[in-house]
């Protein structure tokens, strides 16, 4: 229940009229980064959730409308992005420089 579900895959079964989905992938040097830790921080920069990216570098969160920050940690480096999410699908990319 609280363990990180498998990341990636389709959105079948997810009600995008009620859920605020924030999803995307982590990239570095033209390739997706598997096994990166991606955390979702709220508008006050407090931890809300964390997942590990899929073999294709994907992550997905179920949040609420508002401002969020995504931060990825991995042995090859960090990336961060702030976004405003609305109900429905919010897609983004984290690029590790």
């Amino acid at each position: 229940m609280c363990g990180a579900p498998k990341q990636g895959g389709g959105l079948a079964g997810v009600d995008l009229t009620t859920q605020t989905v924030i999803q995307g992938s982590v990239w570095h040097d033209g390739s997706p980064v598997a096994g990166a830790y991606v955390r979702l921080l709220d508008a006050t920069d407090e931890f809300t959730a964390e997942v590990v990216t899929s073999p294709e570098g994907e992550f997905r969160f179920f949040a609420a409308p508002g401002q969020w920050t995504l931060r990825s940690l991995s042995p090859i480096g960090r990336a961060e992005r702030t976004l405003a999410a609305d109900v429905g699908l919010n897609e983004t990319t984290l690029a590790i420089a």
């Binding site: 579900p5 009600d15 924030i22 979702l40 407090e46 931890f47 809300t48 959730a49 179920f62 609420a64």
Partner: peptide, 19 residues
């Protein structure tokens, strides 16, 4: 829990569906 769960804005950690 996170502040957003405490306030009732969300009902579960945000890696889980909010239903």
């Amino acid at each position: 829990r996170s502040p957003d769960e405490f306030s009732g804005k969300i009902l579960a950690p945000a890696h889980l569906p909010q239903e």
